[in-house]
């Protein structure tokens, strides 16, 4: 059984919801990423989404754009991100890690080598924002061969036919983008999520995580009631941005603990 499945099964048994924080690898500094990952787990993260920085992050708002720019300035590369996961796995073999980013850095490395390396270092899932299922055939084949879960986004604009298609291809969990917009924008519409969820559940057996627009503990708590997992990205990256190397792990951990408590209570 995969780490993602074990994690979500266990949560279901405990009647708890997953907390899935996102950080950008290499932000604020390469040496801080692995300590931050451990900090996230200690503070209560169930799954870690690790952002692979890209020069042109078209689906991201200003907060994650700036994080990508900081990371690239530090010389962060996809190979470097994979090495970070290997280092993380020396101490943690339990927490699933999902790489999230854009297709071109993977294309440049080659899907075959990338998928193989993912398996070697202990990556569990890959989410490529700009590769919809229609353009992912090659990517799939390689990911499947190496037991890496392809994670897909669904959006408020996704129609039923596409939900079915994604349901067939997705593994691990499905990430529902709760609003029309880039990461970190707007405010979440809880009633719209509640309305969409039955349509998603009808076709999707996998756990459903919801993200985009979750900025505080109260919202995280409300969203958690509607789905299986809460993804928090820009708010955490913002915490990284306003911290320094000395206090970043403590500050981010404090924020994630608050989110954890809100979701569990």
């Amino acid at each position: 059984m995969s780490r993602l499945q074990i994690t979500f099964d266990a949560l279901k048994q405990q009647q708890r919801k997953a907390l899935i924080p996102f950080i950008t690898a290499g932000d604020p500094a390469q040496k801080m990423t692995v300590p931050l990952m451990h900090g996230l787990v200690t503070a209560g993260a169930d799954v870690i989404e690790l952002g692979v920085p890209f020069s042109d992050p078209m689906a991201d708002g200003p907060v994650i754009q700036r994080a990508s720019e900081r990371a690239l300035k530090q010389g962060m590369t996809l190979r470097g991100v994979l090495n970070m996961v290997a280092e993380f796995r020396q101490q943690n073999t339990r927490t699933p890690v999902v790489l999230m980013g854009y297709g071109n850095p993977i294309e440049a490395m080659g899907w075959s080598e990338f998928a193989q390396r993912c398996e070697e270092v202990g990556v569990d899932g890959v989410l490529t924002v700009d590769f919809p299922p229609e353009e992912s055939h090659d990517a799939f084949e390689h990911l499947q061969r190496h037991h890496i879960a392809p994670i897909f986004l669904l959006a408020p604009t996704t129609n039923e036919a596409r939900i079915k298609q994604v349901a067939k291809l997705a593994r691990g969990y499905v990430y529902y983008v709760s609003l029309k917009g880039v990461t970190g924008s707007g405010s979440i519409d809880l009633s719209a999520i509640e309305e969409k969820m039955p349509q998603l559940r009808k076709h999707i057996q996998l756990p459903i995580g919801v993200g985009f627009g979750i900025r505080d503990a109260a919202t995280a708590k409300a969203v958690a009631k509607l789905c299986d997992g809460v993804v928090v990205g820009s708010r955490i990256v913002q915490e990284v941005e306003t911290s320094n190397e000395q206090n970043v792990v403590a500050n981010v951990s404090k924020l994630v603990s608050e989110l954890r408590q809100a979701i569990d209570n």
């Binding site: 078209m58 689906a59 297709g103 924002v129 700009d130 590769f131 919809p132 229609e134 353009e135 897909f152 986004l153 669904l154 959006a155 408020p156 604009t157 996704t158 129609n159 596409r162 983008v177 029309k180 917009g181």
Partner: peptide
Amino acid sequence: GGSYMAETLVPA
């Protein structure tokens, strides 16, 4: 060519 877009824009 092709159509490489984030899910929100695919239906559009």
